[in-house]
């Protein structure tokens, strides 16, 4: 559904990418998006979260 990351490059394609300034904002953004989208936030690597729709 969406990607949240602190890296400026590395993601391409049709998924919306949300840029975060630091780790704290990464958590906060992912948290908000998880609640808004009723999605599950998974950690892809140290700098990126992936929001996935489940059920």
């Amino acid at each position: 559904m969406a990607v949240v990351t602190t890296r400026e490059s590395g993601f391409a394609g049709g998924t919306p990418v949300f840029l975060a300034r630091d780790k704290e904002e990464l958590q906060a953004l992912s948290h908000s998006l998880e609640k808004i989208l009723n999605a599950a936030a998974h950690q892809l690597n140290e700098d990126s979260f992936l929001l996935v729709y489940r059920q």
């Binding site: 958590q27 992912s30 948290h31 998880e34 599950a40 936030a41 998974h42 950690q43 979260f49 992936l50």
Partner: peptide, 20 residues
């Protein structure tokens, strides 16, 4: 273990948020 959640030695899922 980091984002990985295990029960015993069975891998369950990847949990992203610290809160969860």
């Amino acid at each position: 273990d980091g984002p990985n959640l295990l029960v015993g030695d069975v891998y369950m899922m990847n949990v992203g948020l610290n809160e969860n």
